[in-house]
Structure formats: structure tokens, C-alpha cells
Nucleic acid binder design. Structure first.
Length: 580
DNA sequence: ATAGGGTTAG
């Protein structure tokens, strides 16, 4: 056996970097460092193996005179998955300019991965062109990577076009399209892809279910989610931890904590996601005590909490007014679990103190946070000042928002409400002027409701729905029924002051999106069933009062998920106890 | 030698 054969054989069985370095020394003493097969193998091992070393691979690679595709692929692949994927693209460029070796389908798969991770949008397009020129645009894997890379770079439309034009799509391609849409926040599109998929007989698996369930969670599509749950049971995917976790989250965020618990209870394997989904679920429903109970069980089960665990806990504590507990968990993060509180945790703490009326403490909290220049913290404080009608600290919060250049019309409206509560007409006038000078720019409000497996979206005074005449007719009826029980359309504090709230922006006599959604729900769903609404903003005071009366007048449970928490309306009262 | 897919928070 020749020396080079012996070394190649040694390399075959090599499984550690240490051992590899020994072999490498052997290569050098035998003068074989320019042996192409050997150096290529060495590079491959160092770049790809978990026990390898990318910098060592680089060193070896640069000693190869005319690296062949194989060696290029190894180095491009290694960097594509590394913390510095840009390097991968640079090597790809070098490969092109070297003119010695040509990229193959594997090269493209690797470099596309790098483009996806590095956000190299132009490179992504360029690589696409090269793929076509090289005649690889019919390869399923390459195209799937292209789709992912385009979505990762924000070209959602181009990605879908590539996907639609693929000559062949397998289950992974479909799953990629779904999960990419879902991760990019295109939830309706993700669910629509599933409809297309059903006609193609590719089946589905755990990956499909996870992507779809995540989208259901985000848009509150409970019926679709329940259907997926049934499919998961029928096809044997419920034992998959990812699927179980996604189901728990879906049920919890759709307002069905009991169903979330059922899934949780039936799981044989639970990981940190499983526990977090329960804790966060209880937290956003305002059940701090429930979140705490799951946290204790989690520790007993020997699962390490992470920063999200504490977000759920703190959120629950703040909504339930568990100040002491919240403080305790906040400290516990760093002292017992070596987790550094992030900006979100500070946000929860500001909310915890602020909501409880401890505004000075909330202010101190911002002072000790690592990012006092985060507008979110000041805005949270401002919100608390509105609840507790505190002009002094409200003005401090506003001053900071202005200094940060982050103040917006919504903030002025909040402060105006605080002034209005204090009957400070000068203050109101000042805010009115500021709003006028800035122009009102706020997020338009939406509400979604699911009826059957269709999701219907409404905006303020929406007339785009095909059944809008019927919906408006129903809404007028609902309003008069509610009025019989005592509902008085409430002009908000602010409109009295000649201003309008964020939610009331469009017109003062407006039908807010959730009123339309509720009327639609009452008209389209069977008597006695509960109605679930998801909206992107907070509920306004008038709609909150309206919904309470409606829940009584029509004997319906109405569950509204707003931007921050859940409201369960039943028999004329709301689970938030009018405190939100 | 070698490729592509998943959940919480934001």
C-alpha cells in the first residue's frame, strides 16, 4: 500500500480534530501536502465535521493549488452553516473567478443557504440567474433552497413564483413554502398553500402541521387548528413533540386553556417549549397563579427555564397584580438561573409596577434597565399613568419619548387623556396642537373572526365584505339589544376633549372593527356557541362595554384576544375585571 | 464526499 493510500485510509477513520492534526503532520513529513485527494479530504473533514475546525479548513484549502469543485463545496458548505455565512459567499465568488472548477447543484444549495442567513438579496437573485444558466432550475432541492432564500430576503412574491413554477414539488418543498410564509408573518398565505397542497396528493407530516398550526395561532384560526389536531391524531403525528407544542400554543392563544392542558397532559415527552407554551398561555390570560404553578412543576420535572419562561411568568404576574411574586421571579432569573433580564422583562416589570399604581417604582425600573433609550418602556409607563391619572410622571415619560425622537400621536393622545382626567384644559390644548402639527399616524385597527374554516377580517367602518349590508343591519339590531340592557355608546374621554383616541381615529360615529366582527359572528354562528375575535390593537373602552352587554343580551361567551391579553366576556362581565 | 423542512418570545 502506498503512503498516500495509507493516509487516505487513516483519514477515513478519523473522528477528532486532534487526530486529524496528527495525520496532517504525517502528510507533511511524507511530502504529500499537495496530493489533491488527500488535501481535499482534509478540507472536507475540517469544514463539515462537528469536531472539525473551519479556520483549519481554510488554512488547508489555501494550500491547494487548483481546488476542484469538491474542495470548494466543502469550504462553501462549512461557512454557510457557520457564524459567518458571508465568508461562504466570498468563497463562492472566488470559485467563479478562479475559472478552474464549475459549481454544481450542491454548490448552489450551500451558497443559497448562506444568502438566506446573511440577507444577501442581490446575491440571491444573481445566484438564481446562474442556476438557470447552468440548467439546474429543475432540481427540487435547489429550487426549494431558492424559495427559502428569497423569503429570507423578503422577496415573498418572487419566492411564491419560483415555487409555483417548479416542475416538481415534494413534501419538503411544500413544507418549506408553508413554514417560510408562517415565519415571515404571512399566515393567511400559509393556510392557503395548505389548500393547494391538499389537491396534490403529497400527504403531510409533522413539519407541515407545525407550520400550519403556528399560523393558526397567530391569526386565531381555532377551527382550522382543531381540524389539524384531528388529522394529527389520525395520522399519528400527535406524539411528535414539535406538533404537541404547536397544538398547546394554538389552543392557548385561541383562548382554550382547557384544550391546551389536555394536549399537555397527554404528552409523553415534554421540553422547554412545552412548558413555556403553558406558562405563556396562562400568563397572557392573566392567570399569574396558573403560570407560577406550571413553573414549579417544570422545575420539578427537571426542565431548565429560559428567558421566555420568565416573560410568561412576569406577564401573568403583572396582569393579576402579583407584584411581590413578579419581583421575586425577576430577581430569580439572574440569581438562580443565570439569565440576564432583557428589555422585554424590564417592560413587564414597568407594567407590573405601573399597573399596580406604583409609578415611582416603575420609573426606577426604567432607570436601572440597560436600555433607557427604548421608547417601549416609556410608553408602557405612560399607559400606566393614564390608568392612575398621574400627570407628573406622565409628563416625565412624555419628555423622554420626545427626547428620544420616538413620540407619536398615540402618545399625545394618552397624555391628553391624562390631562383630561385632571381637567387640565391647557394640557389638552397643548396635546391637540402637537397632534395637529404632527398629523395623525397610527396603526389601523383590524379584527378577525373565524367562521367555519374561513377567516373574516374587518377594519373600521368596513364595507368590503360581500355581506356588509346584512352585517350592518345585524349590528344595528345588536346595538339596540345591548342598549335595552343599559349600554350607552360611550364618547371617550378624549373625544369629549375634542380629540380622538387611537382606536377612534377614523370617525366619531364609527363602527369599530370588533363591533362588525361581533355582529358578523352573531349572525353566522349557532346560538349558544362562543365567539372568538382576534384584534391587532387594544380594545377601546366603548367596545369593551359594548361587548359586555352583548355577552349578556345574546347569552354568548365572547373571547377577544387583543394586542396584549385576552378578555373573556360572559354574562355581562369581563375576565379582566375592567382593568386592562 | 456532499443538499432542502418544524414550535414559544420579538
Amino acid at each position: 500500500m502506498s503512503k498516500s493510500d495509507t493516509i487516505l485510509k487513516l483519514l477515513q477513520g478519523c473522528n477528532s480534530l486532534q487526530r486529524l492534526q496528527k495525520i496532517h503532520a504525517h502528510v507533511i513529513t511524507n511530502g504529500l501536502q499537495h496530493h489533491p485527494a488527500i488535501s481535499t479530504k482534509l478540507v472536507h473533514f475540517c469544514a463539515v465535521s462537528v469536531s472539525g475546525s473551519l479556520s483549519y479548513a481554510q488554512l488547508l484549502f489555501h494550500h491547494i493549488d487548483n481546488p476542484q469543485t469538491q474542495a470548494w463545496n466543502s469550504i462553501i458548505r462549512g461557512f454557510a452553516n457557520s457564524p459567518s455565512p458571508l465568508q461562504s459567499i466570498l468563497y463562492y465568488n472566488d470559485m467563479f473567478s478562479s475559472l478552474v472548477s464549475r459549481p454544481d447543484i450542491f454548490t448552489f444549495s450551500f451558497v443559497l443557504k448562506a444568502c438566506e442567513r446573511v440577507k444577501a438579496e442581490n446575491k440571491c437573485r444573481e445566484v438564481h440567474g446562474t442556476i438557470i444558466r447552468c440548467g439546474y432550475e429543475r432540481d427540487v432541492v435547489v429550487c426549494t433552497n431558492l424559495v427559502r432564500s428569497y423569503v429570507g430576503n423578503g422577496f415573498i412574491g418572487v419566492a411564491k413564483k419560483v415555487f409555483d413554477d417548479m416542475s416538481e414539488r415534494d413534501l419538503v418543498s411544500w413544507n418549506s413554502m408553508i413554514s417560510c410564509y408562517s415565519q415571515a408573518g404571512f399566515h393567511y398565505e400559509a393556510l392557503k398553500v395548505y389548500d393547494e397542497m391538499k389537491n396534490e396528493n403529497v400527504g403531510l407530516d409533522g413539519f407541515t402541521l407545525v407550520g400550519l398550526l403556528s399560523s393558526c395561532t397567530h391569526v386565531g384560526a381555532l377551527n382550522v387548528g382543531v381540524n389539524l389536531h384531528r388529522i394529527a391524531c389520525e395520522e399519528g403525528f400527535v406524539k411528535n413533540v414539535y406538533v404537541g407544542n404547536a397544538l398547546i400554543d394554538m389552543y392557548a392563544k385561541c383562548g382554550c386553556l382547557d384544550d391546551a392542558f389536555c394536549v399537555f397532559d397527554s404528552m409523553q415527552k415534554r421540553d422547554v417549549f412545552t412548558w413555556n407554551s403553558m406558562i405563556v398561555g396562562y400568563g397572557v390570560h392573566g392567570h399569574g397563579d396558573g403560570a407560577i404553578s406550571f413553573f414549579r412543576q417544570m422545575l420539578m420535572a427537571g426542565v431548565q427555564p429560559n428567558s421566555i419562561t420568565f416573560l410568561g411568568l412576569l406577564c401573568g404576574c403583572s396582569h393579576q397584580g402579583l407584584v411581590e411574586e413578579g419581583v421575586e421571579y425577576f430577581h430569580m432569573m439572574s440569581t438562580k438561573f443565570n439569565l440576564k433580564p432583557g428589555i422585554k422583562h424590564y417592560g413587564c416589570m414597568v407594567d407590573l409596577f405601573g399597573r399596580a399604581g406604583k409609578l415611582e417604582k416603575a420609573l426606577d425600573m426604567i432607570g436601572t434597565s440597560p436600555s433607557q433609550d427604548d421608547p417601549v418602556l416609556w410608553r408602557t409607563l405612560l399607559g400606566s399613568c393614564k390608568i392612575h391619572k398621574n400627570v407628573k410622571i406622565g409628563e416625565i415619560a412624555m419628555r423622554n419619548l420626545v427626547q428620544l425622537g420616538a413620540s407619536n400621536a398615540g402618545d399625545y393622545i394618552l397624555l391628553a387623556a391624562i390631562y383630561a382626567g385632571a381637567k387640565d384644559t391647557d394640557g389638552i390644548a397643548k396635546m391637540r396642537k402637537l397632534i395637529k402639527s404632527q398629523g395623525i399616524k397610527t396603526t389601523p385597527g383590524w379584527s378577525w373572526i373565524e367562521v367555519g374554516d374561513q377567516i373574516h377580517k374587518f377594519v373600521v367602518d368596513d364595507k368590503s365584505h360581500p355581506d356588509f349590508v346584512e352585517i350592518y343591519h345585524k349590528l344595528r339590531e345588536v346595538i339596540s339589544q345591548a342598549a335595552l340592557l343599559g349600554y350607552v355608546p360611550e364618547e371617550s374621554l378624549i373625544s369629549v376633549a375634542g380629540l380622538i383616541t387611537e382606536e377612534c381615529l377614523e370617525t366619531s360615529t364609527s363602527y369599530h372593527s370588533e363591533k362588525l366582527a361581533i355582529a358578523f359572528g352573531l349572525a353566522k354562528t349557532p346560538k349558544g356557541t362562543s365567539i372568538r375575535i382576534v384584534k391587532n390593537l387594544r380594545v377601546c373602552k366603548d367596545c369593551h362595554s359594548f361587548t359586555k352587554y352583548v355577552s349578556k343580551a345574546f347569552n354568548r361567551e365572547i373571547i377577544v384576544r387583543d394586542r396584549v391579553r385576552f378578555h373573556h366576556f360572559k354574562g355581562g362581565v369581563c375576565s379582566c375585571k375592567d382593568y386592562w
